[in-house]
Computed example of a mutant assay.
Amino acid sequence: MVDVAFLKNKAAQIRRDLLTMIYEAKAGHTGSSLSNTDLLTVLYYSVLKTNPQKPDWEDRDRFILSKGHAVESYYAILADKGFFPRAELKTFCQFGTRLIGHPNNKVPGVEMNTGALGHGLPVAVGMALAAKMNGQAYRVFTLMGDGEQAEGSVWEGAMAASHYKLDNLIAIIDRNGLQITGKTETVMSLEPLNEKWRSFGWKVVEADGHDLAQLQKVLAAVPFMPGKPTLVMAHTTKGKGVSFMENVPHWHHGVPTAEEYNRGMAELAAAVEECGYE
């Protein structure tokens, strides 16, 4: 297991990077990206088998960010891991950049373009099935939003994954309870969500999506049941890490003012200091 203090430090640093990217670009999905930062931090610094020097390494684990609008934390982590230069983060959402507002497979480390919700899981099913057919040991992870669960293609993918017994497939739901127009249960009721996934033949495990130690333990144990795909229901807080952004729907795609940016950066600097770094 990776030291939890290290992971906390990384998560706080990634949050600072993504907030700066959004502030300087005057565009982005702040709350959504803050929500998934801890999940991506554990995946990329503790779980996934990848090689930044060989992003197309045949035996790498595959990751698909199905909730592609929350791309800022993803780009920040890929840069920090060395898939591309950190200086390129300054070009986020600028003219001519490859760091556009949704994952772009021209960026090393990005498996596919995403952003049209409901596409990530079906493609992940295909990748996992290919591994089974080719006798390869890589795993496929995909991170979905909870509002995304209203997409019919998600459930087609869920059904296929169970049918083909894809225990090398791990789906994670960023269950923060909010989507662009409000609470998920108001926009399109999802509950009982765990039972729905179980009825489609998946092994479902719940986790605190901001408890880095718990996430490490859960994700290190996949697959939970031979012959079954795994669904991790990660309970999160939209806007996590910046107090005045937490659980506020406006920050789904809100861009901070100079004053808000400075307040947020001060809070994140304090979070880094608490980890015993810098």
Score class of each variant (00 low, 15 high):
P52F: 12
A11G: 10
E72C: 04
A27M: 10
A137E: 15
Y23E: 02
E111C: 10
T236I: 06
E185F: 11
A207C: 10
P108A: 12
G241P: 09
M1S: 14
T41W: 09
L129R: 09
R175I: 00
K106V: 02
Y277G: 08
Y23R: 08
K106Y: 12
R62G: 01
F84P: 07
G276F: 14
L121P: 00
L121H: 11
M245T: 12
A25E: 07
K228H: 12
V204E: 08
R15L: 06
G135M: 14
T20E: 13
T30R: 02
N168M: 08
Y277V: 13
M21A: 11
V4H: 04
D146E: 02
G264K: 09
I100H: 07
M1Y: 07
L219C: 07
K67C: 04
Y75L: 07
A130Y: 12
E24H: 14
E148G: 06
T114S: 13
D61K: 15
G182A: 04
R60A: 06
V204N: 06
M133D: 04
G120Y: 15
V71T: 12
E111A: 12
E111P: 09
N51V: 01
H102C: 13
K49I: 01
T37F: 00
I22Y: 01
R263W: 01
I14T: 07
D211R: 12
L89S: 03
K54L: 03
N168F: 14
V222Y: 01
F95W: 13
Q136N: 14
H102M: 10
Y74L: 06
A27I: 01
G157V: 05
G254I: 00
H69N: 13
M159K: 13
E195T: 10
G118E: 06
V205W: 10
N262H: 05
S243T: 11
A79D: 04
K228F: 10
G152H: 11
A161L: 04
Q94L: 07
R98D: 00
D208M: 08
N105I: 00
W155S: 08
D17M: 08
V2Y: 05
R60C: 03
K217S: 08
G145N: 13
A76H: 10
Y277R: 15
L7Y: 09
F200G: 07
F83D: 06
F141P: 03
M245C: 14
T30K: 12
P229Y: 02
P256V: 04
L43P: 03
S199R: 14
A269F: 01
Y277C: 04
G28E: 02
M21G: 05
G28P: 10
Y23S: 11
P249Q: 11
H69T: 05
M144D: 02
A213W: 05
L129K: 15
V272M: 08
T41P: 05
Y44C: 02
V272R: 15
A158H: 02
Y74C: 00
G227D: 03
L178G: 11
A116W: 00
L89C: 04
A12K: 02
E191D: 08
L268H: 09
L65M: 14
V140D: 04
K10T: 03
N176C: 02
I180Q: 15
H250C: 02
V222I: 09
D56L: 13
S199I: 14
R16L: 09
Y74S: 01
K183M: 05
E195F: 11
P52T: 07
I100A: 00
A130P: 09
A131L: 06
A87K: 15
E259V: 03
L231A: 09
Q13F: 04
